[in-house]
Every structure is written in C-alpha cells, then in structure tokens.
C-alpha cells in the first residue's frame, strides 16, 4: 500500500494513547505488526517538551510515526500543532483532526478543509480525519489531500461502521484514493468488514488500548484486517434471497 509515495506493509495502524503502560503498548505493536503509529502532540508538548521520554519509547517501536492534531478545535490550533509535530518528529505527515463538536468529537468540515489547504501549501502531507461525506471528501482532495480517513463512528465509541451505505458510496466515488477507516471501531469483525468493503486500512486505538488484554486484541485486529483484505481480493459472492444448497440433493432420500 502506498501512502504519499511511501510503501507501507501493514494495513493496520494503531494509536499510542491510553495503554496501561508503554510496555503493554510495545507488546501490542509487536503482536499487531502495525506499520504506522499515530502519536498525539498537543498536551504532551509545551515549551519544555515534557513528553520526550514517552516519545522516545514510541520511536523505539520501529514503525512509521504519524503525529496527529488530536484535541484541536480550531484551524489555528491544528496548524500550530502540526508545525510543532513536524519539528518534533521530523516528518511532513500529519493526521489532521479539527474537532467541531465537543460531545461527539465530530470533525468540523469547514475548518478541516481550510486547515488541510494551509498545511498542504506549507509542504505537509495531510491525513484528514473526516466523515463519510462525499462532498467533503471532494473538497479535501481539492485542498491537496491524497489520503482520506473517514470515520467508522465517533472516536472512542466502538460502534463500528455506523453508516455502511455512506462508506460504500465514498469508496465507490473515489476508487483510486487510499482510504483508512479511522475511529469508532470496537471489534475485529468491524475492521474485517471495512477491508472487505475495499478500504485500504484501518486505524484504531481505544479498542486495543482499553481491552482487558491489549496485546491479544491487537493480534485479533491484525488477523481480521488480513482476512478482510484477502476476502476483498477473492471477489465475494453476491448475497441472494434464494437458498441454494451447497451439496447436490439428487440421489438423497429427500422425500422420506
């Protein structure tokens, strides 16, 4: 899978927040084979760079880092945080979150497009956290984004793919744009479904970090993602109403 020209070998991306400890986090990454780790910058940065010790542990995971602007509620905040992240992590990649609604953490579509444009012009490669809205997707692509990250459900809810119709439409409208279902996944089956539908990857955090056994759950997601991708390429059958027995009935004593 190519993201902004970089080959990424895993279709599972994991966040790095809320784990019981950095050691558990590292074990979850090892078992998941995740290729990308998102890392939050805002609260941990500050003038003293107080989060340096934790970031060093995340760097030691040996995966590609995707800093995010989690917790930003305005364009200005998100842009500043992205610039700080570029300096801290020496990368042009930024997962752009501009939150528009405090309770649902729903993206602010207008702020998102504006911030995406500003950051793209500034040389960033932007991964926008967006809804499944096709018009918004179009605007984000216009603003220079080459990857989209539609939500499955609001962040941290674990509700899975709540608007399957909308996600299918989005996938069908932009077949060549890499898309990562980001946020709202709670179970591996939901991740498998996203991959079966043709999404390129999934990104999750809470479902693994808050599981009773995060490392086991990370592996479960890894297998589900692999299964979903295999199934997508295997050309699934179409659902049909008529029952069709998979073994021939001729010769059986079915009239008994």
């Amino acid at each position: 899978m190519q993201l902004y020209g970089t080959e990424i070998n895993s279709r599972l991306m994991l966040g790095t927040a809320q784990y019981p400890s950095p050691s558990v986090l590292a074990e979850a990454f090892r078992r998941s084979d995740a290729g990308i780790a998102t890392v939050s910058v805002r609260r941990e940065a500050g003038a003293e760079r107080g989060g340096a010790a934790f970031w060093n542990l995340v760097r030691d995971l040996g995966v590609t880092l995707l800093p995010n602007t989690a917790g930003c509620h305005s364009v200005r905040e998100a842009v500043t945080t992205a610039q700080m992240a570029r300096e801290l992590f020496d990368t042009n990649w930024i997962k752009l979150e501009v939150i528009g609604h405090a309770d649902t953490l729903q993206p602010d579509p207008f702020g998102l497009v504006e911030a995406a444009r500003i950051l793209t012009e500034d040389g960033f490669q932007v991964y926008p956290y967006t809804t499944e809205d096709v018009v918004l997707a179009d605007r984000l692509l216009d603003a220079g984004c080459e990857v989209l990250m539609p939500w499955g459900a609001p962040i941290g809810t674990g509700l899975g793919l709540t608007n399957i119709y909308g996600l299918r439409t989005l996938r069908a409208q932009f077949p060549d744009v890499p898309m990562v279902v980001d946020a709202g996944l709670g179970l591996p089956s939901q991740a498998a479904m996203a991959l079966e539908m043709g999404f390129d990857a999934v990104l999750l955090n809470t479902a693994v970090a808050k599981a009773g056994d995060p490392a086991a759950m990370a592996e479960a997601f890894a297998r589900a993602v692999e299964a979903g991708r295999l199934a997508y390429h295997a050309d699934p059958m179409e659902p049909r109403d008529m029952a069709a027995p998979s073994t021939p009935v001729i010769g059986k004593a079915f009239l008994s």
Binding site: E44, E48, G50
Partner: peptide, 12 residues
C-alpha cells in the same frame, strides 16, 4: 495522567 514530566498546572 499525562505522558509528560512538566509540572505545569493546566487550565484544561
């Protein structure tokens, strides 16, 4: 609980 060793008391 924040992964940081700064000692600022934050408004948030």
């Amino acid at each position: 609980q924040i992964e940081s060793d700064d000692r600022k008391r934050s408004v948030r």
